[in-house]
Amino acid sequence: MTLWAKWATALVFVLLWCPLGAAHLPLVAYVRGISSDLSISLVAIACLGMYQRVSGVHLVSDHERKVLNLVFAAGALFLYPLALGWGDWDSYRLGWGAPGMWAALLVVSLVCWGKGLRLLPVLIALGLLAWAAGALESTNLWDYLIDPWIAVGAIFQCFKMVGCQLRLRFRTAAGGVARTSS
């Protein structure tokens, strides 16, 4: 990070807390009105990303990041369509203390742990702890684990992954054809 970028970041941070308008709300409160509260997972990932950027230490492996994107994308595809009215069954309802959701999270955490992945179980653990403590305005566990911003990011990364795979296969196949024809 250059010195200029550091100063710009600091300035943006200060501006975000300056009161504006008749209600004397800081800019961050206006952003919050539109973005809604961020999930614990997104906050943790953002903190991790900032730490990596500042320290230059690479903490998360590519494999771990791919699994994270896949799980968040799958979670988003399960949660949002059903919660927003696709059919009569509401997936969001599970977040108000359904034992099935607790069990599913335990299975995901144990499977990841068994595969040597640590980031996803830690994110789930942080979400569960915050939910048990009632840290956010929401009383629904889903809001601690996932939010639309992380969902969009994960789905985008998954598409990117699939695109890369297809491009690689296409190049391999094209390379094979070229070698055969030469």
Partner: peptide
């Protein structure tokens, strides 16, 4: 975040605590 002794133990404790508290709730 790669499996290692101290980090693993901390993560395991966090996980057990989180599931226990959420289960209790």
């Amino acid at each position: 975040f790669r499996p290692s002794g101290a980090w693993d133990r901390l993560a395991a404790v966090l996980l057990v605590l989180a599931f226990a508290l959420a289960g209790w709730k």
